[in-house]
């Protein structure tokens, strides 16, 4: 608690600045932040502690029955399970490809929207998929992909791109079909975020770049990109956090099949915890997922962080 103590105990010393300039005593600090800390502890810290506890126990389901301490059994079982690693591989593939497509297409869409005269109308239209609940989106696409009456299925089959079987029934195509749903639903959000960043691109720098002799593509990379960097970080971070724990589309479309080809880690975790009620085992999976989310999130922010050290020089140094 030393940090929370009053900054300077000897405030009455001679030579201290007058009252108005003096740093305020911190005696109200603790009472003021206590409610927030309490709420946070209740909502966030307690569940985390409970999760850690569960990952070292075999959790009893009957009311009042004691949990059995199993040491690291849940963890060794998890690390030895090929399905766990396959879950990671699919998750990485799914969220990686989705994110690249969403950020790429979203940025392109934002640039086009920014130049359009009908920007407001178009953004409303484009944002519609985002308003749909993920499960509903999943069901909608379930119909589009359907092997009997699905329109996309019919189109792909007519073009001869589908060699027998259905879209979601093929272990080669199912994952990409779900990627497409995610891209459809979330690209507009990225576009919206990037568009807000594009509004901040300094017009004079853009013009200077044209005068320097840059074409549209070059001036985008030279001027616009650096100033929408912050927006891109937010978009990447949001999409990454979302994609790494998404199960809605998977449950609605494939349920992890065919042949576990779309059983991404969150779905595996869901299945272990709530289908097989292996709550302790599920907790260890959840903890690793949480840890990776935090680490990658930190890395994403770190990669983009700018380093500006020195301040301006004085006029005399010219």
């Amino acid at each position: 608690m030393a940090l929370l103590d009053r900054a300077s105990p000897d405030v009455h010393d001679v030579g201290n600045p007058p009252l108005a300039n003096r740093q305020q005593p911190r005696r109200y600090l603790i009472p003021l932040i206590l409610p927030a800390v309490a709420v946070l502890a209740l909502l966030s810290i307690y569940p985390l502690a409970w999760l850690i506890y569960m990952s070292f126990h075999q959790v009893a389901l009957a009311p009042g029955a004691p949990d059995t301490f199993v040491g690291t059994a849940n963890w060794t079982r998890m690390f030895g399970n090929p399905q766990y690693w396959e879950g990671w591989r699919l998750l990485a593939l799914y969220s990686g490809v989705s994110m690249v497509l969403e950020v790429g297409l979203g940025t392109l869409l934002a640039v086009l929207l920014n130049r359009s005269k009908h920007e407001k109308l178009l953004i409303t239209v484009f944002l519609m998929p985002m308003m749909v609940a993920p499960v509903v989106a999943g069901l909608l696409w379930q119909y589009l992909y359907n092997g009997t009456f699905g329109w996309y299925f019919w189109v792909l089959r007519s073009l001869g791109l589908l060699d027998g079987g259905t879209i979601l029934g093929s272990s080669d195509h199912a994952l990409w079909a779900i990627v497409l749903v995610d891209v459809w639903e979330w690209t507009p959000l990225v576009a919206l975020i990037v568009l807000s960043g594009l509004k901040l691109v300094p017009k004079d720098q853009m013009e200077a770049s044209w005068m320097d002799g840059a074409g549209p593509v070059r001036s985008f990379f030279q001027v616009a990109l650096p100033s929408i960097k912050a927006s891109l970080i937010i978009a990447v971070l949001l999409r990454f956090m979302d994609n790494i724990r998404i199960i809605d589309h998977f449950i609605a479309l494939t349920g992890g099949g065919p042949a576990n080809s779309t059983k991404v880690l969150p779905l595996y975790l869901y299945e272990q915890s709530f289908s097989f009620f292996e709550l302790g085992y599920g907790s260890s999976i959840a903890l690793t997922l949480l840890l990776v989310t935090i680490i990658v999130g930190k890395l994403v922010v770190g990669v983009f962080e700018t380093r500006e050290a020195k301040g301006p020089m004085s006029e005399e140094e010219v």
Binding site: P202, D204, Q205, E207, A208, T306
Partner: peptide, 14 residues
């Protein structure tokens, strides 16, 4: 092939 100096200088900050 014209060069221009802007009121705001318009240097590339990065």
């Amino acid at each position: 092939d014209i060069a221009m100096v802007f009121e705001s200088y318009a240097l590339y900050p990065q």
